[in-house]
Write a protein that binds this DNA or RNA. Structure first.
Lengths: 223, 223
DNA sequence: TCAAAGTGAGTGTATACTCACTCACTTAAT
DNA sequence: ATTAAGTGAGTGAGTATACACTCACTTTGA
């Protein structure tokens, strides 16, 4: 956990242009909490006002619509996702080869899991939106997916050249890793019973390493 | 794919007590389609009536509320989930040992993937509900999880005794398998670009088998 | 004193749900 | 065979309510 954490991104993003009042901050926090708890549609603007301890009109002072309010919450997150995805893959990192698979997997996922944990609620709201807003899903994906495939792709190719990683198509490799990652995050988000965070995070790296280790079972067989 | 498919469960379930009219069937179908397309809250009862080609009053003839309508759609699915989960683990199957990991993995997931594919829309509606309705989530989970853990647990223990499977706690094994399965299903449901069904299903079995194969990397290491 | 922040009663609209009514069809009586 | 009575699925205009959003006014703080 040596690398910088993401925090206070509201402050960070918003205070560049204008100051944010305590009440406006309370509104953002209440909205985020409620959207994550009950879902966007199930949250009324009067719910938000009540939770934030302000009048309903105050909610509309800065944000013209409820959707604009949601977007104000999600904007900083989506803006931060790309740098996070690209971290660890700056040019010098790329030039340095990873000595082992375990080092690679650990390096890659420590940041991303930390980021996800620090922004659980926002991610939950993003997922809700992505599930039924087809356009936005494609928009967000088109921003992120190519960058991710490209960045990870070059590292994977390096590892392939060194025979440190299984020789599967890169997209399949990514899919299996992301499945494990999202599965872990889903358990955290839904607070499924019996989720022991520390143990599972260690296990996550073990499983991913195992998937990627070259071996005899690597031929993709159908039935 | 030798074992029976799930189809026409509406007919099957409803016609025991009473006949279902063509219009009522159209209403169920339209609701299911719309709930899966746009989400429950984003679908109005007049949307449903329009899509089904009936008057709005007709929607309320059989189902007293919109929620009751959704439940009428989900009831047969949830009723069928448990048998599907338990299939392949009837007593004689349990007594017979699986000759190889691949056989085990293939046997387990063929049915379940087929079931999921045949009921994509219903699953999507269930997931939407589970995401924000904490009570229902726990209710459904409490019905399913223990059965699944028990059934799969005994088979895993057998495989462990034969040293055919990695020696990890059963819950961790299940989690990694379910992550892969749900990741695959999510890609299907969200129609993520570049999802080639056949190739990925074959790959799914390969990855799962690889995860479970005993080997040198099996110690769960943290950082 | 002024500008910005905050207020909350008020408004228009969307939507879940109701109900008095229609009408095609079945049953029963003559 | 004919007709009267009964049945219930279907209808759609109507209702009550909840909700997103507005605006004339008040409070705050520099």
């Amino acid at each position: 956990m040596e690398r910088p954490r993401i925090r206070d991104y509201f402050q960070q993003d918003l205070s560049q242009n204008e100051t944010i009042t305590p009440k406006q901050r309370a509104i953002l926090q209440a909205s985020l909490d409620l959207f994550a708890e009950k879902g966007f549609d199930q949250t009324s603007t009067s719910d938000i006002a009540q939770r934030a301890g302000v009048a309903e009109g105050t909610v509309y002072r800065r944000y013209k619509t409820k959707v604009a309010l949601r977007d104000a919450i999600l904007a900083p997150i989506t803006a931060h996702i790309v740098p996070i995805l690209a971290s660890d893959f700056s040019e010098d990192k790329l030039r340095q080869r990873y000595p082992s698979l375990q080092a690679f997997v650990t390096a890659i996922f420590t940041d991303r899991v930390a980021f996800a944990k620090a922004n659980m609620k926002e991610l939950k709201v993003i997922f809700e939106m992505a599930a039924f807003d087809t356009e936005r899903r494609e928009q967000i994906l088109s921003q992120i997916a190519p960058k991710m495939v490209k960045q990870m792709g070059s590292v994977i190719n390096q590892l392939k050249a060194d025979h440190l990683i299984v020789d599967w198509p890169n997209d399949l490799i990514l899919q299996s890793l992301l499945s494990q990652l999202f599965g872990y995050l889903a358990r955290l988000m839904l607070e499924l019973p019996g989720t022991e965070i520390e143990r599972e995070q260690a296990y996550l790296i073990t499983v991913m390493t195992k998937i990627l280790t070259p071996g005899e079972h690597d031929q993709i067989t159908g039935q």
